[in-house]
């Protein structure tokens, strides 16, 4: 792949992820509306308000751009860019079909988790440079939560890698032609559970949305942000959700493998299914207390993830020669 070709493919990937994310926000509003017996967005772009994401984007672009006077202006402006860029970088390593991936290296899984671990720095910078007590408390909570849940997240990501014996997403997809990892007895179910729970905590989604808790912290680390800079954090959150859904479908649900036909369409269907599951969780559970959040991680998810990885390793060492 030449330099120019890779560049063009990257732009296309970036654009399509942006488009999908814009309509995921619309889908979330419609789905949430249905779950709560409302209709959701309706007026902008009849029928079903399909122009709503575009209207939202225009509104955010037109809003006043504020920077706190006593904050750190440079870092305040850097933080949203950091979060967005890092969130998008992960997609470069995810295979969308069985043979197309933007950056073709044998370390996709390592790179994906490496870039994921950088997001917390951006959130920290945002909270600190705002010069706002709510934002700072939120940033400290986020750091405690994201750093803690990174451990079970990586432990559960490692299970498919250990079962296959490779860090390459394409090998993991290829190995699941004989059986998706979610059907692998015990190990598969435990690791998908640990993965989804810790990924929700990483993305500050609802059972774990302590960093953003509206009733306690106004809106968390992004409280001083307005207009497009606020939209960047919002975008980063949805890109993270999309990445989690996509990763689940690739690592545990067989990726492009499926009945009748094979290919990218199955990846899309599975990703959407996981996304719907995440939305369902959002409207079904209450926010955890901070001690419950820590307890769940250190006393349940991390030991379970370690045990699971141990069993997967035993199975792998018995099956490889």
């Amino acid at each position: 792949m030449s330099f120019l070709e890779g560049f063009v493919q990257g732009i296309v990937l970036l654009g399509s992820v942006l488009g999908v994310v814009a309509y995921l926000t619309w889908f979330e509003r419609k789905f949430s509306g249905r779950l709560q017996s409302r209709i959701g967005p309706y007026w902008v772009g009849r029928p079903h308000g399909w122009l709503q994401p575009i209207a939202d984007g225009l509104k955010l672009l037109a809003k006043e751009d504020l920077t706190p006077l006593k904050g750190d202006g440079l870092l305040f402006n850097l933080a949203p860019v950091w979060v967005v860029v890092i969130s998008f970088l992960g997609f470069a390593f995810l295979p969308f079909t069985s043979n197309w991936v933007l950056v073709n290296i044998d370390l996709g899984l390592l790179y994906f988790s490496a870039f994921g671990s950088l997001i917390v720095v951006g959130v920290f910078v945002a909270g600190w440079s705002s010069n706002n007590k709510y934002a700072l408390i939120s940033a400290l909570r986020t750091a405690a939560q994201m750093v803690a849940y990174e451990i079970p997240l990586v432990l559960s990501l490692l299970v498919p890698a250990v079962l296959v014996g490779s860090l390459d997403f394409k090998d993991i997809v290829e190995a699941q032609r004989e059986g998706w990892f979610v059907f692998f007895p015990f190990v598969g179910q435990v690791s998908i559970l640990v993965f989804l729970l810790s990924a929700l905590a990483e993305g500050n989604r609802i059972p774990f949305d302590l960093p953003e808790a509206e009733s306690e912290l106004v809106a968390g680390f992004s409280v001083e942000y307005s207009g497009m800079k606020f939209a960047y954090f919002y975008l980063g959150e949805y890109v993270h959700l999309l990445a989690v859904s996509l990763l689940t479908s690739i690592l545990f649900l067989g990726g492009p493998d499926g009945p009748l036909f094979q290919g990218g369409i199955w990846v899309a269907i599975k990703t959407l299914a996981v996304f719907v599951g995440i939305l369902w969780i959002r409207w079904s559970f209450l926010r955890l207390r901070i001690d419950q959040m820590m307890l769940l991680n250190w006393k349940f998810l991390t030991p379970l993830g370690l045990l699971n990885l141990l069993i997967a390793g035993l199975w792998a060492s018995l099956n490889y020669t």
């Binding site: 370390l107 490496a114 950088l118 600190w128």
Partner: peptide, 17 residues
């Protein structure tokens, strides 16, 4: 990859904390 994971992700978070 390890540089990003350990140093940029881990050590910097610790320093900022």
């Amino acid at each position: 990859g390890i540089q990003i994971l350990l140093y940029a992700g881990g050590v910097i978070t610790l320093i900022i904390f």
